[in-house]
């Protein structure tokens, strides 16, 4: 089974990434809600990297690799060559502030933190990896 996908940094490609993640996770006998939440977390990170680190440039690409470790955990590596955005350092905004300021963004990374068990940021010489880990026993 193909366990990676690479697409140009266009928001219209988010749907292709989601379809890829669904296809891989569907084999793992997880519930629809479990699969959906992981798809959402990957989508949120990809959207953030496309927009903020790569300015939606079609000349930049983003890659998602999925590793399944003995049915114990799923690891998603999201790789890009953008400006490098350590999402762990992003301060969690207050929901009420977002509502009052009428901002239309800001809750994506909050979702990622609540869905995934571990979030790592790995800065290599010429690329960055956002690594999301979900322990399957913790689902539920």
């Amino acid at each position: 089974m193909k366990l990676n996908i690479s697409v140009p940094c266009l928001k219209s490609n988010l749907q292709r990434i989601r379809t890829f993640v669904i296809d891989v996770l569907r084999e793992q006998h997880l519930s629809e809600v479990e699969v959906h939440s992981m798809v959402l977390a990957v989508d949120e990170v990809c959207a953030n990297l496309m927009i903020h680190s790569n300015h939606c440039s079609p000349n930049h690409s983003i890659e998602v690799r999925i590793s399944l470790k003995n049915k114990e955990k799923v690891v998603f590596d999201i790789i890009d060559k953008g400006s490098g955005f350590d999402i762990r350092k992003y301060p969690e905004p207050d929901l009420q502030d977002i509502i009052h300021m009428k901002k239309k963004g800001g809750v994506g990374l909050m979702l990622v933190r609540r869905i995934m068990d571990e979030i790592d940021f790995i800065n290599k010489e010429d690329y960055n990896i956002v690594r999301l880990t979900k322990f399957l026993h913790s689902i539920g």
């Binding site: 989601r18 959402l40 239309k104 809750v107």
Partner: peptide
């Protein structure tokens, strides 16, 4: 079938209005 934070953000931005 699917909603991400971008969609939730739209709903949230109208709560006050």
């Amino acid at each position: 079938n699917y909603i991400s934070s971008a969609g939730l953000g739209v709903f949230m931005s109208y709560i006050d209005d």
